[in-house]
Write a protein that binds this DNA or RNA. Sequence first.
DNA 1: ATGTCGGAATTATTCCGA
Length: 258
Amino acid sequence: MRIATWNVNGLRSRLEFVLHWLAARQPDVVGLQELKLTDEQFPYDELAAAGYRAAVHGQKAWNGVAILSREPGEVTRRGLPGQEELGSRLVTARFGELSFTTVYCPNGKSVGHEDYPRKLGWYDGLAAHWAATEAPARLAVLCGDFNVCPADLDSHHAPGAAADRIFHTAAERARFGRLLEGGLVDLYRDRYPETRMYSWWDYRGGAFHRNLGLRIDFVLATPALAARVRDVVIARQYRKKKDGFTASDHAPVYADLD
DNA sequence: ATGTCGGAATTATTCCGA
């Protein structure tokens, strides 16, 4: 079984690219973020033709998340309780024994901006919601764009120099760390403890070419699921322009399970 | 620091968010 996450930065602009990736990599369950469309605008027909069902939590222009799957699932949650005014950023579906959640965590803009404490509050809501709804002994996935670099290894910015920078602050790292302390495993970092690999590169300044990136997209999972992991891949080649189609600024991340 | 995107509002240009 292959599970994946990808911030597509606008599904209407990215649909051809996403369909190509689905055909090439054949994931079974996929969390998508930054759809930038309403539920009514979601391309159900095109994805169904490619063999995928979809559980969608969209909104006009911004945010929006979805779960694609080859097999039918049951949607158990749309939206993070108490945090709905920050946008459509969470959806959960159940596939048999597996609970699969994908999130688009708030960006926060910059330390000192009013969005920054709201980001921390959103994370507090996520940790509380997760603890209240997911049992550590079960099979559960929490994947998506977390907009946090958990460690210096996850950022091109020099260690220390970035301590006051958005995505790198002690407060953000503590919020993300709370999810791990709650039992979740960062599947990529668990398998590759020393590897410097990014999942996002700015469109500006030739950042991808210069490998000035951040690792902010994660597949987190309960220990029961982590025990089944065969490999984890950050597919950076999908950050490159393909046949004239512009790529997202994020690469897809996927894990193969026994 | 900021060279690029996607989308909305308004009609080819400007803004916002990332």
